[in-house]
Design a protein around this nucleic acid. Structure first.
Lengths: 198, 198
DNA sequence: GCGCGGTCTGCGGATTTCCACAATAGCCGC
DNA sequence: GCGGCTATTGTGGAAATCCGCAGACCGCGC
């Protein structure tokens, strides 16, 4: 679900943030430790993360690192009480979306979270498209993939036949199969698909 | 030139940094104020910027904003004595490349500057390619541009003729002109050019 | 062994693209 | 007005692509 995940070991803060966001119609789930969230995380968890830096046990930064190692691309907003520039800079350069010091302005934080949620939705839509594409590519045979690459590289069938050492007719057959499986009608459409054009 | 531009109103620091970088074979130019650099800036100044935050007159942050307003895309590394998280976060989110607190580690700073210089070179190469492309597109006539768009959209000449209400032969002529002016031989190559593929 | 899928090939025809040669017409600047 | 650029169209042929029909070989699983 597209939810704000709040990871903070201070229950009072989880509750306060929970109230804040629920009053703005943002679904919230609270986690009492980095480990708890890490255990529950799966790639189809969507939404964004609000992460306290200083926690007992695993810190927010370490959780962030571990999530990155697992290819989590959920937007992360850090919350911290004690400002530390190198930490903030490091987190942002690793890809964190924001880094907010307490005390924070409620409205501002809500806005940033809402932006992050929208970003995650968009990103997931893009990734879903890519996944469908990858699935179609997976149905291609070895040869078909080879031919497809050369077609997308702009080679004529004649040239492809030469390069692969097969007859033009065979290239045509593979090419037709590629078009069918990739659900396109022309080489241009195929190129747009694979180069990720609009 | 691809140079490190140091903007700091403290001459001692400019000198110290100048020595540091020149000893590492990084060309350096020092500027004694934000205004001085801003006056001298032009879009073909290349390299990267090392910018002190606190200066008499215009601050480093304000210089950064003004440069952004002028579409400067040179990588900027901020230097600051007094850490302030919101400022650092704001600068990075606006696109600054780094934000370093004094005292800094010499080697680390040099590495980051060298990275930034390499980034600028790459970025300029990409932009030069795009500029050449834009220049070629500019030589196309109205009609040729229309035809090009439809070709890249994957339409057949026949369909393009219908959509534009002209004869197929005319479409062929425009299409050939487009290929010639854009220096490609196939519709696929043209598509790759315009969609910015490898 | 038999079927299925992948790879390979040829033939022939329809469609599309590519291109040289040729021509008409409007607009703009010298 | 002439020359140049743009847009338009036609004829006709060469080249490339698209596609159905037909057949071949090989490996794999039932």
């Amino acid at each position: 679900m597209t939810t704000l995940h709040i990871v903070d070991d201070d229950e009072a803060i989880r509750d306060a943030l929970g109230w804040l966001f629920q009053s703005r119609n943002v679904p919230v789930i609270g986690w009492e430790s980095a480990q708890a969230f890490l255990d529950a995380w799966s790639p189809d968890l969507s939404g964004c993360l609000l992460l306290d830096i200083r926690m007992d046990g695993m810190s927010g930064l370490e959780l962030f690192d571990r999530l990155l190692a697992q290819n989590c691309r959920m937007p992360v907003i850090f919350l911290t009480g004690h400002g530390d520039v190198p930490i903030a800079v490091g987190a942002l350069k690793k890809g964190a979306r924001d880094f907010v010091e307490k005390p924070f302005n409620d409205n501002e934080l809500v806005d940033r979270v809402i932006d992050a949620l929208a970003f995650d939705r968009d990103q997931r839509a893009r990734e879903a498209g890519q996944a469908g594409l990858a699935a179609r590519i997976a149905t291609l045979t070895q040869r078909e993939r080879q031919v497809m690459e050369l077609v997308v590289a702009g080679r004529l069938n004649k040239v492809i036949a030469d390069e692969l050492g097969i007859s033009m007719r065979t290239v045509e057959v593979h090419r037709a199969h590629v078009f069918e499986k990739m659900r396109v009608k022309t080489a241009v459409e195929l190129t747009r698909l694979l180069t990720g054009a609009a």
